[in-house]
Design a binder for these strands. Sequence first.
DNA 1: TATTGACTTGGACTTGGTCCATCGTAGGAT
DNA 2: ATCCTACGATGGACCAAGTCCAAGTCAATA
Lengths: 138, 138
Amino acid sequence: MSDLLERLRGRGWRMTAQRRVVAEVLNGDHVHLTADEVLARATDRLPEISRATVYNTLGELVSLGEVLEVATDGRAKRYDPNAHRPHQHLICSTCGAIRDVHPTGDPLSALPAAERFGFTISAVEMTYRGRCPECARA
Amino acid sequence: MSDLLERLRGRGWRMTAQRRVVAEVLNGDHVHLTADEVLARATDRLPEISRATVYNTLGELVSLGEVLEVATDGRAKRYDPNAHRPHQHLICSTCGAIRDVHPTGDPLSALPAAERFGFTISAVEMTYRGRCPECARA
DNA sequence: TATTGACTTGGACTTGGTCCATCGTAGGAT
DNA sequence: ATCCTACGATGGACCAAGTCCAAGTCAATA
């Protein structure tokens, strides 16, 4: 659970007030914010920050491999700072809550050669959908 | 491989020229068109059809369970008429080509109870990403 | 063939995101 | 400590995908 800012500093990332607040906002577990949510939280700490900068910074964090882009639906992309331990997502169909999950087994081996159409497969994304306890109670 | 139009007629779906061409455009295997692609193909057959109608009709086909909405990336949603046989998707990261695939095993059982956070899980979507033979050659 | 509620239309609007010319500043050099 | 300059930040225009709505049209029933 090492700190995102620490790692970025260690990589010689040029630090600015804007980049710092974006990295701070993204720190933590089960964090899956949209760009607009990141902007809102960043604006609390640094009112002058611009939308373009948030998008630029998020894009850069994704390129650096420090943050994952998650396109869970047709709406806004979400940004997931848990890029170190491979994981999948569990999403509540009702309220949209997201949890990181760790299925067992290798999903790659579940796809027979005959079903690969000659592709060289490099990644598998899994999205579990269901209803969270809060929504089930309501 | 029964015909989409047949099924819709059988379900008492009110038929119009617009709905017919949308259903015709979507018929087939490994079809994963965006709304704009559907509109373009529909316009070939029925030039007066409007964008709103294409969106309305696609939305309705999804509600009826006759077509699946696939959000593969942050771009436009794709519409998949193969809603009858459960399947997953294999996508070329380079050119975006999509194939329907059928992994073995039950991905639901790969998620231990401790990793379910009390959710009632109803579906699992898997997206395999890789490079297709054509792109690998280039 | 008359009726009517469901369907269609196109244009305005919204959301999520990108682009770009210009300004500002972090961090190395002096 | 200060100066330089390349890299970062800004905001406003722009774009793509999709939704909404009031008004017009038409498929299906009677």
